[in-house]
Design a protein around this nucleic acid. Structure first.
Length: 878
RNA sequence: GGGCGCUUAGCUCAGUUGGUAGAGCAUCCGCUUGACGUGCGGAUGGUCAGCGGUUCGAGUCCGUUAGCGCCCACCA
């Protein structure tokens, strides 16, 4: 049944076909099956408008590996996919589209605008799903969800109402982070701080009824329009006499009090701080303590409002210039210092965030944080790598109330109605028709929508049907592993944990697997503005999805950033091609059509060796995967396939496959197929496409590799003795090859090999291999040195000496130098070990096995040295 | 100010219970070896950032210093 496969593996030809086959087979769909254990991963939902980038590729690869592994292990493995409505991002995108037509969202009005966004969502929402499929992601697409679908919306509403009723959601006027460009409030997590060079301006405020001044220092002079006080430290001797007096706010001519507050640092600046309670969180706190007026002078777009007097209408930058110019003209600007400070910027648009007072909705975090901290402290939820536990804990312990309202249109509108008559708020699961307090009909719904992360926080259970008690929720929840980058631990992971605890009474997953960021080859973050992003789809196109996946999971350690090298994709493409050709070889020489091993008695040394190696591999890879050491797991499979199976086992079978012994031939074929079948299974989670394609081509049982069972260690196929024997034979082959390579002897020059050892029967069993792979014209096994061995080239292993009579090709000086080098190395090594053995401490305290091992090593080295010395002496005579 | 990570071969990085260091790429030598030149066989290359400690023994554990990077807090 020899099959003809092309010489080069072509992923393009294979991947779409295989993916379709999986989809049509329904293998991605996880059924509720009481006879199986569930294993669940919820996918971090990408933005509806998003394009697949390397971060997604990383996420998807890790999750797919775990899901495929568990599916093969017999779990009902659910990978729950979906997309996120991504409030700001999506709204901005649609607004940009509108702008091309010269329109704003206000021109359309809320209803029409939302209609537009939904159209946009229908148009582009599926794009990223298609892109994910090219990576081979085995998601249960039938269950795919959208954060604004009916179910999720119901869950969001339920959660909002519950938290409100428990007093954990409230509306209040607080200093929040406001982005004047996105025109919305942001949560603390959405602010990114950047060190920026700025200035510290020193401004004179005249003290009322006095010739004195106080000098305040500020980095944001325009906010002085909203100043309602000046604060000094109560212990500051310089200003004791001014406490309780008032000063005249320049430009505005408002009388503002001078108050004493511990908040002010004595050493920084002048020791006097202008107080702008409406535009600074600290000033707001101080203001509360001293009853300072709250005067908000910037509007939602960052433009000075009517309280800013003559500066009204200027945006914040222009206002700063104007204020400084006027102060200068009045001689009130006494000093301008360079000053580097941290400026909060919007994570979306990267413009400076303006802290300002605003009425917003908040989630009271302290009570929710308690359980979220406990489940992690008690190990019910573990972070991998472990170090992220501390980051999470630290954040959760210091968490402040979460500002959840956004002044957007695209999102879950807050289910709160304010009464025009009594002014009270009605929050309800059903849209109310009247105020629940005074029954007035004049109620209006809050315009704001919820932070996108408010719905994402419910993702692990809302996607399974919560708040309904669905069978899915019962079976698949809590989920198992959550995979994501460290950059969204606060945004998402933390919020899912407290939400899961609060609403379902259970932590939403037992493991959080954190990965790092994918950077470019210079270590820079991939970004649109830098134009240094590498498109995963292009990599799939050029090298195949399997190669890209391998790149994602190797070459870095968990939780650390990785640099993306295109060359690495290339090397994994080569690996794919290597496996392809190995299987091509197997298929070309195949006369059997059923899988299965022969009786153990039929197995030869080489067979037992590879089977034994395979057994060890299965154990290690499984263990690595259970511990989320994906990179290590796949490295071992890679090495096994390339170094053991291809470089050795295939070569070892050739003489049998081309030989006359039919039984040996069949055995070799059976083992070749068996081992291939097993390593294809081990590799499948990592390189799903090529493994499936090959598996379908070789004799196999079952309909698809994706649902084939995961290999398990089989003690009956462990052969330590044959493993050792084979290694000894391989040592001889390597030694001869090394020696020949050192002397540049071409393969075509064959020679008689005299092999001297005290286990001639062992080497006899490997005669065919040694002859072929060590380029022998003839192999002579002896237990005594051959005649004229002095004139031969020697290759030495710990257990054997090989002599080759090719003196005519020998460069004696080069050979002597080689031997001298080896001798020195051996002597150095021996010295090291002898030191150990002469060390009474070592002899007394090291475990017996280690001591024995060292003694053996020393003995081997002594033998090697004496052999080398012999060779040296011989050569010197020549 | 607090915390974390990194520093290992020319480059990028592995190295999980402490037992004289590995991979990929690059470099050099050789090879039309009946699967594969996207290949085969070899080779070169490392005082594992510095210092101190624990230990019979440290890349691996502890302390400390330096450089780089990140996160959190934020003195206007």
């Amino acid at each position: 049944m020899a099959k003809e496969l092309p010489k080069v593996y072509d992923p393009k030809e294979v991947e779409d076909r295989i993916y379709k086959m999986w989809e049509e087979g329904g293998y991605f769909h996880a059924k509720i099956d009481p006879s199986k254990k569930p294993f669940t991963i919820v996918m971090p939902p990408p933005n509806v408008t998003g394009q697949l980038h390397m971060g997604h590729a990383m996420d998807a690869t890790l999750q797919d590996i775990l899901i495929r592994f568990k599916r093969m292990q017999g779990y009902s493995a659910l990978w729950m996919p979906g997309v996120d409505h991504a409030g700001i991002a999506t709204q901005i995108k649609v607004e940009e589209e509108l702008r091309k037509e010269g329109l704003t969202r206000y021109d359309l009005g809320r209803e029409k605008f939302l209609q537009k966004v939904w159209e946009w969502k229908e148009k582009y929402g599926n794009r990223i799903v298609q892109q994910q499929k090219t990576l081979g992601s085995s998601c249960d697409w039938e269950r795919s969800r959208f954060t604004m679908d009916e179910g999720c919306s119901a869950a969001v509403r339920e959660v909002f109402v519950r938290l409100y009723e428990k007093g954990l959601i409230y509306k209040g006027s607080r200093i929040i982070n406001w982005c004047p460009d996105c025109v919305t409030a942001l949560s603390d997590a959405e602010v990114e701080y950047q060190e920026k060079p700025g200035h510290l301006w020193h401004i004179k405020y005249p003290v009322k009824d006095s010739d004195e001044f106080v000098i305040v220092a500020t980095t944001r002079p325009e906010t002085m329009l909203g100043d309602s006080g000046v604060a000094v430290n109560p212990k500051d001797e310089r200003y004791q006499h001014l406490i309780g007096k008032t000063c005249i706010l320049p430009l505005v001519n408002r009388e503002i009090p001078i108050v004493a507050d511990e908040y002010v640092e004595l050493e920084f600046g002048t020791g006097c701080v202008k107080m702008t309670p409406a535009h600074d969180p600290n000033d707001f706190e101080v203001g509360l303590r001293h009853n300072l007026e709250v005067i908000r002078v910037l509007d939602d777009k960052g433009v000075v409002n009517e309280l800013g007097g003559k500066y009204q209408g200027l945006d914040r930058k222009a206002a700063r210039k104007a204020v400084l110019a006027d102060l200068e003209a009045l001689g009130l600007l006494v000093k301008t210092e360079d000053h580097v400070h941290n400026v909060g910027t919007c994570y979306r648009c990267h413009n400076d965030v303006e802290p300002l007072i605003s009425a917003q909705w908040f989630v009271k975090m302290k009570p929710l944080a308690e359980e979220a901290l406990r489940v992690v402290a008690d190990g019910e939820t573990k972070f991998v790598p472990e170090r992220f536990t501390k980051i999470y804990t630290n954040w959760m312990e210091n968490v402040r109330d979460w500002c959840i309202s956004r002044q957007l249109w695209w999102g879950h509108q807050i289910p709160a109605w304010t009464c025009a008559d009594c002014g009270k708020i009605t929050v309800s699961r059903q849209d109310p028709t009247e105020c629940e307090h005074c029954h007035s009909k004049s109620i209006t719904r809050d315009e704001d929508v919820l932070d996108t992360w408010f719905s994402s926080a419910l993702w692990p259970f809302e996607t399974l049907g919560w708040p309904e008690k669905t069978p899915e929720l019962d079976y698949f929840y809590p989920t198992d592993v959550l995979v994501t980058g460290y950059d969204i631990i606060f945004f998402w992971v933390a919020r899912m944990i407290f939400s899961g605890c609060e609403h379902t009474g259970k932590a939403p997953f037992h493991t959080v697997l954190i990965h790092g960021l994918v950077r470019d080859d210079k270590g820079r973050k991939m970004s649109k503005s830098l134009g240094n992003g590498i498109d995963p789809l292009e990599m799939v196109d050029r090298f195949g999805a399997d190669a890209l996946r391998m790149n994602m999971v190797t070459g870095n350690s968990p939780g650390n950033d990785m640099r993306f090298y295109v060359e690495r994709c290339e090397s994994f493409r080569n690996f794919a091609n290597k496996i392809w050709n190995a299987s091509r070889f197997v298929l070309m020489n195949l006369t059997i059509d059923k899988p299965g091993l022969p009786d153990v008695s039929a197995l030869e040394t080489a067979d037992k060796w590879i089977l034994s190696k395979l057994n060890a591999l299965i154990g290690e890879v499984t263990e690595n995967l259970e511990k989320y050491e994906l990179g290590m797991a796949v490295q071992k499979v890679y090495d096994f396939i390339w170094d053991q199976y291809c470089d050795w086992y295939i070569e070892l079978t050739k003489s049998r496959l081309y030989g006359e012994d039919e039984s040996s031939k069949t055995t070799a074929q059976q083992v070749l197929v068996y081992v291939a079948d097993q390593f294809l299974r081990l590799l499948h989670p990592f390189m799903p496409f090529i493994t499936e394609e090959i598996w379908q081509a070789i004799p196999h049982e079952g309909e698809s590799l994706i649902i084939a069972s995961w290999p398990t260690v089989n003690p009956a196929l462990s052969f330590p003795q044959e493993e050792t024997a084979m290694e000894k034979i391989m040592d001889v082959i390597r030694a001869v090859r090394n020696r020949r390579a050192e002397m540049n002897i071409p393969f075509s020059k064959k020679s008689t090999l005299y092999l001297v050892s005290n286990e001639p029967e062992l080497y006899k069993s490997g005669e065919a291999f040694i002859t072929k792979m060590a380029y022998a014209s003839e192999l002579v096994l002896t237990d005594d040195l051959p005649e004229n061995h002095e004139s031969m080239i020697s290759a030495i292993t710990p257990d054997a000496k090989v002599f080759m009579p090719v003196s005519q090709l020998l460069d004696i000086e080069k050979e002597l130098a080689n031997i001298q080098k080896e001798l020195e190395k051996a002597q150095k090594d021996l010295g090291f070990i002898e030191n150990k053995l002469n060390n009474p401490g070592f002899m007394a305290k090291a475990p017996q096995a280690v001591v024995e091992g060292e003694k053996e090593k020393a003995e081997k080295l002594r033998q090697l040295i004496s052999q080398l010395e012999d060779s040296k002496a011989r050569l010197e005579k020549m």
